[in-house]
Design a protein around this nucleic acid. Structure first.
Length: 822
DNA sequence: GACCTGCTGCGGGATG
């Protein structure tokens, strides 16, 4: 049977369905049957599954011309999905193809939901096609004789690759693929990705860096333009629309007619408590919707979530208020409209959500943007542009994640064991570890066998033994079992839901804070004084209290930052306020009075200008800087600048920042002219100054918690009997301190800092924006009082200070870090 | 002068 025959089979199948195969589908079949690796860029709902299931099945037929016969054992193809919830849908389309073509291929799912019995059965007889998650794939590599399972595998497809790329789950995938490339001689690696900025790089990460594989790979783009309409909800009474806030409830009544008009509407909120508040408020104001609207987010139990998802499919719901829990996942045909409440922070996330409506080929997606405060209307305008210009973000892949590598090596050691030289070669061909040196490799091997230098006296860190022939192997069954339970790179949130006893949801809070409370203690949360009653089923029960309190809740979790693309577009829209009103977007036009007031009291910066405002209040001297670069960059830039200023003359600051700018507040006035004369925005000595200026150690400590769990140094406990998070945190803290004091060259310790600088503080972006500022004309405006631009920043700080539980000593410590000591 | 905060995702198996 030659390739043309196979094409005929595919084409005639499509004809039977009354479809026509699209160009990208045909291209994919061709490349696949030629034995190439590849990355397919296609939107959801475009028939991308058929683009790949077909060649997989056809290839199977080619190898077994009498295709009624069944293969014995061993996988023929693997389909990776990042979401368990998607697997059933995928199984159905796979089965449809295999049944229609009358092959004997078997299809099965293997995820955490698969029963022990089914897993055992699978061991004896693997299906031909397996649908699974990255974690479950690792688990297969953790079982005895795994090469037998993969030996005859001819294809692996990683669906939604853009979701994995840029995460440690993606790194885990890279490692599994590096192994499969050796075991399965005839394997093709395929990825499916939504549109992202760095598609070429996405292919390289997937396929690996060895030139042979890379040259034998292709990037296929399904050039299907999805029509997306963005409509901003502009407040009718702009004059009374708040300058800050995040809930957006003021525009609730504007949402009702939109819900009325469509079959089903999804309302995306940014946080779980915002989701609950909107849900309750809609019901309060419009009781007629009872039973017709629902809620969906991460703290809601699985059964309810499943019920909601099913109800959407059955068209039983008018509207669902949700968080990113519905970003991806099952296909909801009845959703006609999406409403985004508050800034989505990134273009891709916005488009992803828009795409949840009109989820059919050729259909239009409609998304409304509901601003929660005035300046957010600039974001609305920026999003309009983003859709017009087709802008999307990059997904930045991780480099040198030693924790994931250690986990992987332990995985190999508990199944069949591994020989370091062979695995080193494979690992070096992944994108993540392409620069891994022999020395670093040797360090990691030592770590597996002896624990690290400072842990050598503790046996629990000696997991792997070296056998006589040089094979690295785990022989202890307890170690193996615990490792299998902990495979994966997702470290769970330690947040508990806070509720009234009757069930009203208030938000989520970190366990470590609650663990310090006793029954009857009063604390402030979500703007209320609450009395702690008990913790039950991962929920904190509380009641209202009139007592005053000293214990204040705080959130260590980082908020989302504006993406680089969004920041850029936002600045462009800001500059467009200088255009003639008829050339402005309606959103910018609606802000005319705010721009006017801003100009009256200060200026709106032009493209070549960088604005600094200063003024004095009872609180002290405010110095406000506007890079418009997102909160992470502002956090870093703020403490950097504060540090550099303090070198000129001793002074202390408190730092506040949001997505638009940052504030240095002090009881002394900064001589801004001196700042300018001394070139304090220079990007030279950036990393050095940054390290000295902020509490990088504290930030790294938090990163290290995840690293210690992923690398297997800290065990998170048996299912249902989770080790108290408190203990977990203290053991990872302890390790962190040991390494800091005795073994700073420890690779995992160093990784915590690298991650802090690269991922948390976005060092690369910081450098670029400092360089941009260095080229701009700096405009310093002494003002009389807070301007429309500075107002959100100042009030945000005030409410946060009220809510900070940061210990007094910590605060002093942090302040003295900035304070110049003489 | 306006002010209720912080997303999502995964997950035992060998032996008697």
């Amino acid at each position: 049977m030659n390739r043309n025959d196979l094409y005929d089979i595919a084409e005639s199948w499509f004809q039977k369905q009354d479809w026509k195969p699209l160009k990208f589908q045909k291209d994919t079949w061709k490349a696949f049957l030629q034995g190439k690796h590849g990355l397919l860029n296609a939107p959801t709902g475009s028939g991308k599954t058929y683009a790949l299931w077909f060649p997989i099945v056809l290839n199977y037929i080619k190898k077994n011309p009498q295709y009624k016969t069944k293969h014995k054992k061993g996988l023929k193809a693997i389909w990776i999905t990042p979401l368990r919830a998607l697997s059933e849908e995928i199984r159905q389309s796979a089965e449809r193809v295999t049944l229609d073509l009358e092959t004997q291929m078997t299809v099965a799912i293997r995820t955490g939901d698969t029963t022990t019995k089914a897993r055992a059965a699978m061991k004896k007889q693997m299906p031909d096609l397996l649908i699974t998650t990255p974690e479950s794939l690792q688990l297969l590599l953790a079982s005895k004789d795994y090469p037998k399972v993969f030996k005859d595998c001819t294809a692996i497809v990683v669906d939604e690759w853009h979701e994995l790329l840029g995460t440690k789950r993606g790194v885990q995938m890279e490692l599994a693929l590096s192994r499969l490339k050796t075991i399965s001689k005839d394997i093709r690696i395929w990825g499916i990705s939504a549109t992202i900025g760095n598609l070429e790089q996405a292919r390289e990460v997937l396929v690996g860096t060895d030139t042979r594989a890379l040259q034998n790979s292709t990037l296929i783009k399904a050039n299907l333009k999805k029509k997306i309409t963005v409509k901003s909800i502009i407040p009718k009474k702009m004059e009374t629309f708040p300058w800050r806030g995040h809930l957006g409830l003021r525009l609730l009544e504007d949402v009702i007619p939109i819900i009325e008009k469509s079959k089903t509407t999804l309302l995306f909120t940014n946080t779980r408590s915002q989701c609950e508040i909107w849900f309750q408020n809609i019901l309060e104001k419009h009781p007629e919707y009872a039973g017709e609207i629902a809620m969906h987010h991460g703290s809601i139990n699985k059964e309810t979530r499943n019920w909601v998802e099913q109800a959407i499919r059955n068209e039983n719901l008018k509207a669902v208020v949700c968080t990113s829990s519905l970003d991806l996942g099952v296909d909801f045909a009845p959703v006609e409209t999406v409403i985004q409440i508050g800034g989505p922070k990134g273009v891709s996330r916005f488009l992803q959500r828009a795409g949840r409506s009109g989820h059919r080929p050729g259909k239009e997606s409609v998304i409304y943007f509901l601003p929660t405060h005035a300046i957010e209307l600039i974001e609305a305008s920026a999003l309009q542009q983003a859709v017009k210009l087709n802008t999307v973000e990059d997904r930045i892949p991780y480099l040198n994640s030693y924790d994931v590598l250690l986990q992987y090596l332990t995985t190999l050691a508990i199944s069949d064991g591994f020989y370091p030289d062979e695995i080193y070669t494979e690992v070096r061909q992944t994108f993540c570890y392409q620069t891994l040196s022999k020395d670093q490799w040797q360090w990691l091997l030592n770590f597996l066998v002896m624990g690290s230098q400072s842990l050598q006296t503790y046996d629990e860190y000696k997991k792997v033994e070296i056998e006589d022939d040089g094979k690295f192997k785990v022989n202890d069954r307890g170690i193996a079992m615990r490792h299998r339970m902990q495979i994966g790179t997702i470290v769970g949130d330690v947040n508990l839901a806070v509720r009234y006893q009757k069930g009203g949801y208030l938000g989520s809070i970190e366990e470590y804070f609650i663990s310090k409370l006793n029954r009857g203690d009063v604390f402030t949360f979500a703007g209320r004084n609450l009395e702690f009653i008990r913790i039950k089923d991962m929920q904190v029960h509380v009641r209202n209290s009139k007592e005053k309190t000293k214990k204040i809740s705080s959130w260590m979790g980082s908020r989302m930052t504006l993406s680089a693309q969004m920041s850029h577009l936002l600045r462009q829209e800001l500059y467009s306020s200088f255009n003639d009103p008829k050339d402005q977007s309606p959103e910018i036009r609606s802000l005319a009075h705010i721009f006017e007031r801003q100009r009256r009291e200060s200026i709106v910066p032009k493209p070549n200008q960088f604005l600094i405002e200063t003024f004095k209040t009872r609180e002290g001297y405010h110095h406000i800087f506007y890079p418009f670069e997102g909160r992470f960059v502002h956090e870093a830039m703020g403490s950097l600048l504060g540090y550099r200023i303090s070198l000129l003359s001793p002074i202390t600051f408190s730092l506040a920042f949001n997505d638009y700018g940052f504030e240095l507040l002090s009881d002394k006035e900064i001589d801004i002219q001196q700042v300018l004369d001394n070139d304090l925005f220079t990007s030279s000595f950036l990393l050095d100054d940054l390290q000295k200026s902020l509490n990088a150690t504290e930030m790294a400590r938090r990163k290290f918690r995840d690293i210690s769990i992923i690398s297997g140094m800290v065990f998170t406990g048996y299912p249902n009997k989770a080790i108290k998070m408190k203990h977990l945190q203290s053991s990872s803290q302890l390790l962190f301190e040991v390494f800091r004091d005795y073994e700073p060259e420890n690779l995992l310790y160093q990784q915590a800092f690298t991650e802090t600088f690269q991922h948390q503080l976005e060092e690369g972006r910081l450098r670029l924006s400092m360089e941009r500022i260095a080229r701009q004309e700096i405009v310093w405006k002494p003002c009389k009082k807070a301007t429309p631009f500075s107002f959100p920043l100042i009030t945000d700080r005030m409410s946060r200070e009220k809510l900070s539980s940061e210990k007094w000593e910590d605060r002093i410590k942090r302040m003295t870090a900035i304070l110049m000591k003489k």
